[in-house]
Simulated assay, not measured.
Amino acid sequence: MDSNSLYNHLERLSELLRTDLRKSGIKHGLQPVQLEVLHYLSVCNRYSDTPLAVSDYLGQTKGTVSQTIKVLEQKGLLLRRTDAGDKRVSHLGLTAKGSKLLDRLVPPPMLTNACDNLSKKARTQINHALNQLVMALLQSNGMKSFGVCHTCRYNGRSEDGGYYCNLVQQPLTVDDVQRICREHEAAA
């Protein structure tokens, strides 16, 4: 399969999902980018929940993300808190209302219904192939992977058997290592 054919499939798939997400979001006064911000914040770790990380992950400008965050705060869907160590940095998190709404809207119903009609084997194969494609796109374009912490080269074990990040030199929780991180680098 050549890249043109693959692009056509991916573009169509993206448009179908975006349309379904737009329909779901409109019912709640939300644009797709606002749902994307909420979704990202629901899967990232505490080192990646900043406005800058959101901009990097979504490939959006700081201005767009800043306005999106303001709207989500006004709607009571996310909270901003100042970093204890560096007052210039803010961390973002979903409110209970934001989490509840996101659980209802993402993944979009269209995708959930389609996946329900596929075998477990087909879902696994598609997931694996899409993961390979995403990683190839990121690597060939020098972009950050935003991978799951436990697959990172910096992830290690502390003396007490817990998890430890060798990049930031801090202990990690079980929750941290199951989330995506903007500092992720694939283990060798």
Rank of each mutant, 00 (worst) to 15 (best):
Q170T: 15
S42Y: 04
Q169G: 15
V177T: 12
E185A: 15
C44P: 03
S90I: 03
A96R: 08
G161V: 14
H184R: 01
R18M: 07
L92R: 02
V43C: 14
L79S: 02
Q31A: 11
P108H: 00
D49T: 05
V106L: 06
R46M: 08
Y154I: 06
L78Q: 02
D175N: 11
N4T: 11
G85R: 08
S48V: 00
R104A: 14
L30N: 03
D160R: 11
G59E: 10
T173M: 06
M143V: 08
N8F: 14
E36Q: 10
V89K: 13
R182K: 13
Y47P: 00
L17F: 04
P51L: 04
R22G: 13
K70D: 01
K70C: 02
A186H: 12
T173S: 15
P32I: 00
S55Y: 01
Y40I: 06
R12P: 01
D175R: 07
G25A: 02
D116Y: 08
D116W: 12
N4G: 10
K144S: 14
L172I: 10
L30K: 04
L6F: 05
K100P: 03
H128P: 00
Q125A: 11
M110R: 06
G63V: 06
E73A: 00
Q178K: 12
D20L: 02
N141T: 12
R18A: 07
D116F: 10
N117D: 04
A96F: 07
R80Q: 14
K120M: 13
F146K: 00
E185D: 15
V37L: 07
A114M: 02
R12L: 10
S158P: 07
M1F: 11
N8Y: 10
L52C: 08
K70S: 03
M135G: 04
K120P: 07
Q31S: 09
Q34K: 03
H9L: 13
D160T: 09
G142Y: 05
L172S: 12
H184N: 06
L101D: 03
G63H: 06
N166M: 15
R182D: 13
V43Q: 10
S99Q: 15
I26G: 09
E11F: 15
P51C: 06
V148T: 11
L101A: 06
R153M: 14
T151W: 01
D56E: 15
D160K: 09
L101C: 09
G93K: 01
Q74K: 08
L137R: 03
M143Q: 08
T173F: 15
A129D: 11
N141I: 04
G147F: 02
D103I: 00
R153P: 05
N113I: 03
A114Y: 05
D83F: 02
S99I: 11
L35P: 05
D116S: 14
G29M: 00
L94W: 03
